[in-house]
């Protein structure tokens, strides 16, 4: 079965693109930074899938985290190198549009990943609805609180699309729980230390906090540490489904984490890109269903990223 697919793809590629064979395909993968475990999981997913279908990968990561000028330069440099396709997570969904337009102009196909670009041409977009993720994670928190009590929210980087959508989702979830009071929403920029300190300060003004909603797991862990050090307890939820959050849930210190499965996003992103290159049909849009990981379904997600396996390339379009 697998052999047949490879054979067909070689035939199709040979038919269309001349010299390129499967082994010659190179895909440039762009992620936002090399510090957030989320993007490492994405990269592991792309590498896993690339190995299975026999394409070469080049990973481009800005050396200053989330730097717009730098990712722009990296796209320009990649265009010089002429990879067969780009798999692209923009550091900013608006500011990276001109760079992608350059790739479009150079005739290099682009697959969008994780954050949807505000413009430019993409072959396909693979991601998760951050709004839904925020909504469902928030819902899980508010239900755990029994639909009443006080909640605080820690925001990520203001203006980033992921933060905007996750906060919007949470605030909408809140509307269904009239007995829950949102005490305050404060930014902690997706960072641990800031989340810890902001949480410590918030606890001073609010003696009773029953739930904490954070827009990523790093902030959730900061909030967990702050509460623990003050001997206070609250339901804490985060987003990303990181191994660290899973371990905290296992230990009973955290309630849940909403996962958009970065590993799977990496797999699907790469496989879709390759499908498009090999002229196999692709979907315009492929959304990973958000999963809320809590103590009830913990087991099936408690698997290290490096030992997970991507789906087969022929199964991707059907998904």
């Amino acid at each position: 079965m697998k052999n047949a697919v490879v054979l067909i793809s070689i035939l199709t590629v040979a038919g269309f693109a001349g010299p390129a064979t499967a082994a010659d395909e190179t895909i440039a993968v762009f992620t936002k930074n090399q510090t957030n475990p989320f993007f490492e999981s994405v990269r592991v997913g792309t590498a896993n899938a690339a190995k299975a279908v026999g394409v070469k990968l080049i990973q481009y990561v800005p050396i200053k985290p989330d730097s717009i000028p730098e990712q722009t330069s990296q796209v320009e440099d990649a265009i010089v190198k002429k990879p067969n396709a780009l798999l692209f997570i923009p550091v900013d969904y608006k500011a990276m549009v001109p760079a992608i337009e350059k790739a479009n102009a150079a005739g290099i196909p682009v697959t969008g990943l994780t954050d949807r670009l505000a413009g430019g041409q993409v072959v396909s977009f693979i991601g998760a609805e951050d709004y839904r993720l925020g909504f469902e994670t928030g819902q899980s928190l508010l239900k755990a609180m029994g639909g009443k009590g006080n909640v605080v929210a820690l925001e990520g980087v203001k203006g980033s699309i992921s933060n905007t959508d996750r906060m919007k989702g949470f605030n909408d979830a809140l509307k269904d729980f009239p007995n829950v009071k949102l005490l305050t929403t404060q930014p902690a920029n997706y960072q641990r230390l800031q989340a810890l300190q902001v949480m410590e300060n918030i606890m001073q003004t609010h003696p009773q906090i029953d739930g904490v909603y954070t827009a990523n797991d790093a902030m959730a862990t900061g909030a967990v540490e702050a509460m623990a050090a003050a001997n206070r307890k609250a339901f804490v939820v985060g987003i990303n489904g990181s191994q660290e959050a899973i371990d905290l849930i296992k230990a009973g210190k955290m309630h849940a984490t909403g996962s958009s499965d970065p590993f799977m996003q990496g797999c699907l992103g790469l496989l879709t890109t390759v499908r498009a290159l090999r002229k196999m049909p692709v979907q315009k849009e492929l959304m990973v269903t958000p999963v809320i990981i809590d103590s009830s379904n913990l087991k099936q997600y408690d698997v290290p990223v490096t030992s997970r396996v991507c789906p087969k390339i022929e199964d991707v379009a059907a998904k």
Binding site: P69, T72, A95, G159
Partner: peptide
Amino acid sequence: RISSAHPTAAIGM
């Protein structure tokens, strides 16, 4: 270059 303005675009330059 980026057809937009971003509040941290050139921080650190």
